[in-house]
């Protein structure tokens, strides 16, 4: 190999999607299955890890097959590869984390049609060697997982007063309040409702574009 495995260009493949080219807030991909499972941080982490695995492996497989796939049927080939990987993820989750698997329900299956995966396969893996594709998949998966966890942190912290199931603001049970709850604080039940996920993402986009003027749109 002419260039080192972690050359500057390759490192950029991982770091770019984390901020300036984030798949969710900038490329607008993969919101579909993302937001319904951000009520709790642990769900978001498991979902993020599953997506990282599928984008990485999908990118590698498609990149290795890229010269063999006729371009007319490439979408179907990509779908089949991704679906096979998602079945692996689903079976592993059902075997080792049955509770979480039940909570995620259809959203694991929906990773198949997650636009991030199809988008990266189409835009990157079809034109690049396996190793850069692996890094690209990892970076984009990580960018997606990072945003998911960020949204979940807000929703779980302010919606239920916990993080990863640990209480942060004290005991909220009526009659035996402690910590902030003793001072009259109450959880914002709005945060648990699905529409708040969208509004939080909207605010994150707002903050990001405030800092990076290049991303702003005209309308």
């Amino acid at each position: 190999m002419s260039e080192s495995l972690f050359s500057k260009k390759n490192r950029k493949l991982i770091t770019d999607p984390l901020t300036d080219n984030n798949p969710v807030t900038v490329q607008v991909l993969g919101i579909c299955s993302a937001l319904a499972i951000t009520v709790q941080v642990n769900q978001a982490i498991v979902m993020g890890l599953s997506v990282i695995f599928v984008t990485m492996m999908g990118n590698v497989v498609i990149s290795m097959l890229r010269n063999l796939i006729p371009s007319r049927i490439r979408i179907i080939v990509q779908l089949v590869v991704v679906a096979a990987l998602v079945i692996v993820v689903d079976q592993v989750l059902a075997a080792f984390l049955p509770d979480l698997s039940a909570k995620l329900s259809v959203f694991v299956g929906l990773i198949i049609t997650n636009c991030i995966i199809m988008g990266r396969l189409e835009a990157f893996a079809m034109a690049n060697k396996p190793w850069p594709s692996l890094l690209d998949g990892f970076g984009n998966g990580l960018g997606y997982a990072g945003l998911l966890v960020l949204v979940a942190v807000f929703r779980e912290l302010f919606g239920s007063g916990t993080l990863l199931g640990f209480t942060i603001f004290g005991n909220s049970l009526p009659g035996e309040e402690s910590g902030l709850y003793a001072m009259g604080y109450t959880n914002n039940n709005m945060m648990i409702l699905p529409p708040m996920a969208l509004i939080i993402v909207g605010v994150i986009i707002w903050v990001q574009r405030l800092r990076n003027k290049e991303l702003q749109e005209d309308h």
Binding site: T25, V28, L193, P194, P195, M196, A197, L198, I199, V201, G202, V203, I205, W206, V207, Q208, R209, L210, Q216, E217, D218, H219
Partner: peptide
């Protein structure tokens, strides 16, 4: 609309508000 919110940002927030209405 404030410049950083134009396009994608405001669409997200609008969808959220519509979601609340649909609830």
């Amino acid at each position: 609309i404030p410049a950083p919110l134009r396009g994608l940002g405001i669409t997200f927030i609008l969808t959220g508000l519509m979601g609340i209405a649909f609830m």
